[in-house]
Amino acid sequence: MSTTPQEMIDDLSFFDDWEERYKYIIDLGRELDPMVEDLRTNDRLVKGCQSNVWLECRNDSGVFELTVDSDAVIVRGLLAVVMAAYNHKSAAEILAFDIDAYFAALDLERHLSPTRGNGLRAIVAKIKALAAQV
């Protein structure tokens, strides 16, 4: 999946109601490549998520290659939304990206439960922390 943040915003704004948007987000999650079982380790679990979320980050060429997975279908979809913002970006691009404006444009957090919103923030924080280490 190679979607830009603006394409994600445009795609989600196409739907009239949030039930349709949720279905679309779930479909996005189904399109993510599955994470190989060997990468689903405790050290790759993102702390602060209600569901299990695994994050593998490679930065071999100065560009972050993220592999993500979750045991919850809606969370896999939310991971696809995050991937549109951060995958195939440099550390500087990740740190400079205004994720709050992106989420606001998607009107996303207002439609998530507090625990899902906290989990989404934990995923973002983990990716930003990895970028800050570069």
Rank of each mutant, 00 (worst) to 15 (best):
residue 1 M to E: 00
residue 1 M to K: 04
residue 1 M to V: 07
residue 1 M to P: 03
residue 2 S to T: 10
residue 2 S to M: 02
residue 2 S to A: 14
residue 2 S to E: 13
residue 2 S to D: 06
residue 3 T to Q: 10
residue 3 T to Y: 12
residue 3 T to K: 07
residue 3 T to C: 06
residue 4 T to P: 15
residue 4 T to Y: 09
residue 5 P to G: 03
residue 5 P to R: 05
residue 6 Q to T: 14
residue 8 M to K: 06
residue 9 I to N: 05
residue 9 I to G: 08
residue 9 I to H: 09
residue 10 D to F: 06
residue 10 D to L: 06
residue 10 D to Q: 13
residue 10 D to P: 08
residue 11 D to S: 13
residue 12 L to W: 08
residue 13 S to R: 15
residue 14 F to M: 13
residue 15 F to K: 12
residue 15 F to L: 09
residue 16 D to G: 14
residue 18 W to Y: 06
residue 18 W to D: 05
residue 19 E to A: 14
residue 19 E to Y: 04
residue 20 E to A: 15
residue 21 R to G: 10
residue 22 Y to T: 08
residue 22 Y to W: 13
residue 22 Y to E: 07
residue 22 Y to I: 10
residue 22 Y to N: 03
residue 23 K to N: 08
residue 23 K to S: 12
residue 23 K to Y: 06
residue 24 Y to W: 12
residue 24 Y to E: 11
residue 24 Y to G: 04
residue 24 Y to A: 12
residue 25 I to H: 04
residue 25 I to C: 07
residue 25 I to G: 03
residue 27 D to E: 14
residue 27 D to P: 00
residue 27 D to Q: 14
residue 28 L to S: 03
residue 28 L to I: 08
residue 28 L to M: 09
residue 29 G to M: 03
residue 29 G to W: 01
residue 30 R to A: 02
residue 32 L to T: 11
residue 32 L to R: 08
residue 33 D to G: 15
residue 33 D to P: 13
residue 34 P to M: 00
residue 34 P to Q: 10
residue 34 P to I: 05
residue 35 M to C: 00
residue 35 M to S: 00
residue 35 M to K: 07
residue 36 V to H: 13
residue 37 E to L: 08
residue 38 D to Y: 05
residue 38 D to M: 10
residue 38 D to N: 11
residue 38 D to C: 10
residue 40 R to F: 04
residue 40 R to N: 05
residue 40 R to D: 02
residue 40 R to G: 04
residue 40 R to A: 04
residue 40 R to H: 06
residue 42 N to Q: 11
residue 42 N to T: 11
residue 42 N to M: 04
residue 43 D to Q: 14
residue 43 D to H: 09
residue 43 D to L: 01
residue 44 R to Y: 03
residue 44 R to S: 10
residue 44 R to T: 07
residue 44 R to P: 01
residue 45 L to M: 12
residue 45 L to C: 05
residue 45 L to I: 11
residue 46 V to W: 02
residue 46 V to N: 00
residue 46 V to C: 05
residue 46 V to P: 00
residue 47 K to F: 01
residue 47 K to Y: 01
residue 47 K to T: 14
residue 47 K to L: 10
residue 48 G to R: 06
residue 48 G to S: 13
residue 49 C to F: 02
residue 49 C to P: 07
residue 50 Q to L: 11
residue 50 Q to Y: 04
residue 50 Q to H: 00
residue 50 Q to T: 13
residue 52 N to R: 14
residue 52 N to Q: 13
residue 52 N to F: 07
residue 53 V to N: 05
residue 53 V to L: 06
residue 53 V to P: 02
residue 54 W to Y: 02
residue 55 L to P: 02
residue 55 L to H: 00
residue 55 L to W: 07
residue 56 E to V: 12
residue 56 E to M: 09
residue 58 R to E: 15
residue 60 D to K: 10
residue 61 S to P: 01
residue 61 S to E: 15
residue 61 S to F: 11
residue 61 S to T: 15
residue 61 S to A: 14
residue 62 G to C: 07
residue 62 G to I: 04
residue 64 F to W: 05
residue 64 F to L: 11
residue 64 F to E: 07
residue 65 E to Q: 14
residue 65 E to D: 15
residue 66 L to C: 09
residue 66 L to P: 03
residue 67 T to A: 11
residue 69 D to F: 01
residue 69 D to G: 11
residue 72 A to Q: 01
residue 73 V to L: 09
residue 73 V to N: 12
residue 74 I to A: 12
residue 75 V to C: 04
residue 75 V to I: 15
residue 77 G to Y: 06
residue 77 G to P: 08
